Simulated scan of single mutants.
Amino acid sequence: MTGAHKTGAAEPALTIIIADDHPLVREALGQALRQAMTGVEVVGAADLDGARAALDARESVDLLILDLDMPGMDGFAGLAAVRSSHPAVPVAIVSSTREPATMRRAIEFGAAAFVPKSAAMETIASALQSVLDGEVWLPPEMEGGDTAMPDDFARRISELTPQQLRVLTLLSKGKLNKQIAHELSVGEATVKAHVTAILKKLGVRSRTQAVIAARHFSV
């Protein structure tokens, strides 16, 4: 992933935007990310407009963290707007609510994770790392029946785009994101976006489950 920064220092390995109207929350999340990941640049924003400005100002952003209740969000409208304008950037919702219906709706509107603010910082950092790896994350209590394949799995596979099918096939062969990006002549961010979309369409939570299902259906 190429960056646009031209400084004497080494460029950050990851750029993460944290958008929350509470400064202490931004600081705590930023500290947790810096402790869990090396070479991370954390950019803060206090509202949705600030988050979108930070996205527009950078050539490459690896993750956007959004508070569902901050100014400008208007429920899920803000999430949908960001996903529409920056589809390659994964979005993680970090919110004080633990309502299962709200969590599911967030995923339906394009979020790659819904992480309760009440979770331990280690759990939050682990969840965000899962998103960076291209997976979908929800709290453990939302994972009931996680290993079961949906009854209409064949139909779900048929709804994948040709490029998503190619990515899933390469995942099934054990290829890493970097290898898939090279083989398809696209960026790693694009591959991650495809993987996230594949997991959502197939109704699974991890790359491993997607691969098991793909092999079962001989994709």
Rank of each mutant, 00 (worst) to 15 (best):
L64P: 14
M70V: 07
A80D: 09
D69V: 10
R105P: 01
F114K: 07
A113R: 00
G50Y: 01
P100A: 12
V61H: 06
M103H: 13
G78R: 05
E108P: 07
A51M: 12
A101M: 06
A57P: 04
A88P: 00
A88N: 07
R58W: 01
M121K: 02
G78T: 01
R105N: 07
D74S: 11
I65H: 14
A51Q: 12
T102Y: 02
D56Q: 14
R104N: 06
A77P: 13
D56M: 11
M103T: 04
M73E: 07
G75T: 00
D56R: 15
P100C: 13
A81R: 15
P87D: 03
L55F: 02
P87L: 07
D69S: 15
P87F: 01
S85P: 05
A51F: 11
E108D: 15
A92C: 10
V61Q: 08
R52P: 04
A120E: 12
D62I: 06
P116H: 00
R104V: 08
E99H: 05
R104D: 04
A92H: 02
V89N: 09
E99M: 06
S118H: 05
V61I: 11
I93Q: 07
G110A: 04
I107Q: 03
V115G: 12
A106K: 10
A92V: 00
A112I: 03
A77N: 15
I93S: 08
A111R: 08
T97L: 14
A53L: 12
G50A: 07
D49S: 14
I65T: 15
D62V: 10
E59H: 13
D67R: 02
I65Q: 13
V82Q: 09
P71Y: 06
A120V: 02
A119N: 12
A120Q: 08
P90R: 03
P71C: 10
S85D: 15
A77Q: 15
D67A: 03
V94C: 14
I65A: 13
V115R: 08
A120F: 01
M70G: 10
E108G: 09
K117A: 02
P100K: 12
F114R: 07
L55S: 08
R52C: 13
R58C: 11
P116I: 00
P90E: 03
I93E: 09
A112Y: 02
E99W: 01
A119V: 06
A77R: 15
D49I: 09
D74A: 13
L66H: 12
A80G: 07
